[in-house]
Design a protein around this nucleic acid. Sequence first.
DNA 1: TAGATTGTTAATCGATTAACAATC
DNA 2: TAGATTGTTAATCGATTAACAATC
Lengths: 309, 309
Amino acid sequence: MEAQTSCCAIYNCEICDYRADERCTGCRSGNLDLKERVGAACAVFECVISRQIHSCLECSEAGCRLKRSVEMICPLRGLFEKKRWWAGRMSRALESRRRRAANTEYDRKMSERVVNRLRWYLVALDSFEVEGYESVSSWQLAERVGVSSALIRKDLSRFGEFGTPSYGYRTAFLRDRIRAILRLDKPRGIVWVGACMLRHHASDIERLYRNNCRLLGVFDTDEGEIGQRVGNFKVEHIDRVAEVIAGAEVSAAVIAVTSPRAQQIAETLVNLGAKAILNLSGQLINLPYNVRVSSLDVAGELLELCYYC
Amino acid sequence: MEAQTSCCAIYNCEICDYRADERCTGCRSGNLDLKERVGAACAVFECVISRQIHSCLECSEAGCRLKRSVEMICPLRGLFEKKRWWAGRMSRALESRRRRAANTEYDRKMSERVVNRLRWYLVALDSFEVEGYESVSSWQLAERVGVSSALIRKDLSRFGEFGTPSYGYRTAFLRDRIRAILRLDKPRGIVWVGACMLRHHASDIERLYRNNCRLLGVFDTDEGEIGQRVGNFKVEHIDRVAEVIAGAEVSAAVIAVTSPRAQQIAETLVNLGAKAILNLSGQLINLPYNVRVSSLDVAGELLELCYYC
DNA sequence: TAGATTGTTAATCGATTAACAATC
DNA sequence: TAGATTGTTAATCGATTAACAATC
């Protein structure tokens, strides 16, 4: 177990200015209750060898995943993997804390299910408007979206009284209110990685523009794509992303590459300030808990659907 | 209210052979409790004018949405919209029944959230296997998928005991078990509509093949695409789908067209036997409750993500 | 044997539904 | 006024978590 002497973590936080300076259990006895220790104060994992600081679990700052930081701290991979009780115990102890921290990050008022439904209400309202409906009732909306009318009324009533009894909701008014709730008026900057996929989403981009989402640049890893044009953009190499974006505020990024570098690209984009990643690569991406990842995977989704056949 | 005399529905079912032959409340008093009536027997909506039969709420057969059938029955749109209490009452009364019916369709043992997670466990297991892991513990899997380890153990324990205490799960074994649970060994036939999009999903198709999903044909509405080739397929017009498929069993279909005909195409495919539709069109699709629809919408998803920025 | 990790239980948490008074 | 539909409450339902005995 002497090799694990190097697997120490010093509890320390740049933000809270707390420094426990205690060795981790990995080096000594396995009986020490890590949960207690960590609970006592904000913890940043600092590698005693490289002095690199990793995620603070309390503030959710910096933040690279625990497992990875452990691997970085302990380069003796073979030994570590044969006996990974240290990482195991640690990870289990911290799991629920991190989860809690991640949840309080976002607006407590609105669950992600509500946000998702509001988005579909908007699509339905648009279609009702096109069909010339001045007003819609909750059951009409429910019918089209595929949820219950009670849920629609409940969802909407969180944010105010938008309807009129016995009449329903004025289509245009409700549409505007939902747009405001979803903050679709605020301008956003999007980085797109994967030029090929972008070409097939021209209509999507148009819809984004209508909702104040601007594309900041198009990037790729594939040398064949670099220099090509997509719409108004020249495709740049992903390695040049910081340079090309040059200070523009990145809200979200789309990763639509086929190369297996999705994880690495995602990390680059997070460092650039992206707070949300749309992952179309079909690969799993792991990011700090304060970054939101949404994965759309056509093949996976189809396989899932087949289950119901 | 005389105009609504034509808005009658005869309760009648082709499948159960029940025919109540009673007029709907719309024509007479509004006090009749439709819920009771409908509850008494299987109901199909038959238009007294066109004699067209609409969805049976009991068997979930045929099935076009209630609202649409009402509109068809009552062509006096102006009048109907000014005073739609009939449709409102009806719809509200039936809403929860249909919902219940839809839920009992599927395997009660496994919620859709579980199915979705299993799919991601599979992706994670694949990646662990590639990295050479012989075994994984629930927290390792949890870490990579982004759920809690308790949930993973709970999910897996529904189907048997796949792990070994103090050791974890054997990667290859667990992978095979999950594949079996998701029935990925069973061959499936897929219809793809929207040639352009398919070209950008070559790698997805490959993954489908590895999981026994076979493409039956590629179709489109765009005349420019008809006759072109995609992989091994010649693109055919969607109107020829029945002819081209010719009796092959359709499990699921992908609708990836940009034209606003998504709803209509979906109905065609359901008539061909599709039990699940993957909707990439960005449009809302409404289908009978025994058909599963999953919508992936890049622009919408991205707008939703921006909310969290 | 000591320590790790599973499978499972009970407790908690959150989301959805049914129902209805208030309102138009 | 009669009837429709909202907003909201309490009840229900289901999903997730924490915890721990059983097991390796």
